[in-house]
Design a protein around this nucleic acid. Structure first.
Lengths: 226, 226
DNA sequence: CTCAAAATGTATAATATTTAGCATTTGATC
DNA sequence: GATCAAATGCTAAATATTATACATTTTGAG
């Protein structure tokens, strides 16, 4: 954790301002109210999406009403890039959390710019590779860490991809599914994190009280060796 | 699983033949005997590596002798791409499995070709995004599936990234760490998979008896809803 | 071929986690 | 501000998993 420190700059911030502007010029800004479906698993139409405001939850809706969150994305983060390069349907459901605005860019418009501007592929690769790295860390946490540590680390990771937001809007049951534990076990872990004042448990939300302290706690308790 | 079917073509196979040739022309072919360290976590020198023959295990060596495998890579698969775009040290240890030859390409040589040939960024993005997808599936398996199913799915995934190899060279204890369970639990799962003749348990290896049957079994038992 | 080291096989007690149930709190709506 | 659905809080029995221990098998070195 101390050895390799991840840059949390979202995709949009990695582009040179001129290119970012040009890319957004090709987009349509779409508004969503709280909890609306932005994309559905299986959908075929390819395109890139970028969060303008609000937040998006990426995950998979189970038939039984469960929702397993894979990531919570804040301002400047992108999603849908998988559809641009693979000719495959969407792998995840994406929903808006709160009032949310998303830039939607069709594959054809994206492609025209991609050919001209090498900075786009570099930014996208950096974003994707960073996410791969985060996923590997998450995977590692899931394998190695007890529930308490796993919970803390997941909360920290989500807080990063959400940008500067100071609370995570999520139900305990959904968070529990995302962590691969039951609600009972998660509640126990959350209570413990709340008791040392790293977080505050709300109704349908988790408030981050002190992100730096949380980061330190995670580093101390979840490190590998370095 | 049936909805979204992943293309297992390795990185090298995604490049137009001319570009692949040119890229390998910039590389140095390095030989490794069984179990040699190819890269170490924390190493700073950036560069791309491509498996020419043999196989490479990517993971993290614990101080206590444990090794958590993140992936097993066969012919044509690449690794180290993270170092090309992030200016960060390597996040994983990579070891050779059996007699292995690796094409090593320095960052500077890679960059010169990257600028000229857009097909490289496309291939790399496709590879990386596919891996992200595989990681998300693995993550999902780890959260949702019981040990037996998780074991089968992981074995199948590894068999894909290994190419046409018909056995996975790995100790049960390492595989157990990779699955986040104890050796005892893994042994139980392996025994069950062996009893229905999907695999064969060897000494320091798992043999794939019928990859298609394994794929069908995984699809039947590990699917989401589609 | 023999032997030692390494890896797998297996049993049992201890522990962590889940399941299932009901109680309590919260927030939105009328 | 009363009411109801949704979400969280909590408990105890049932279950899965781990830790620990030791036996057995396999491989490779001499």
């Amino acid at each position: 954790m101390s050895l390799i420190d991840i840059d949390a700059t979202p995709f949009l911030g990695l582009l040179p301002p001129r290119v970012a502007e040009e890319l957004l010029g090709l987009s349509v800004l779409v508004k969503y109210s709280n909890g609306q479906l932005i994309h559905t698993r299986g959908e075929l139409k390819p395109g890139l999406s970028i969060v303008h405001s609000g937040a998006a939850h990426v995950g998979v809706n189970g038939i039984d009403g469960t929702f397993v969150t894979a990531a919570a994305l804040g301002q400047g983060e992108c999603f849908g890039e998988f559809t641009l390069f693979t000719d495959l349907p969407r792998t995840h459901d994406v929903s808006s959390i709160g009032e949310t605005q998303i830039y939607q860019i069709s594959k054809s418009k994206f492609d025209s710019l991609y050919e001209r501007e090498a900075s786009i592929s570099r930014a996208l690769l950096k974003t994707t590779l960073t996410r791969t790295h985060i996923l590997l860390e998450t995977l590692d946490a899931l394998r190695r860490l007890p529930i308490l540590e796993r919970t803390a680390k997941t909360l920290l990771t989500m807080s990063y991809t959400l940008g500067r937001a100071d609370s995570l809007i999520i139900k305990q049951i959904d968070l529990a599914y995302s962590l691969g534990v039951t609600r009972v076990s998660l509640a126990k872990a959350l209570k413990q994190l709340a008791s040392i004042e790293l977080i505050e448990i709300g109704y349908g939300r988790i408030n981050f009280l002190d992100r730096d302290a949380l980061a330190r706690w995670v580093q101390q308790h979840c490190g590998i060796s370095d």
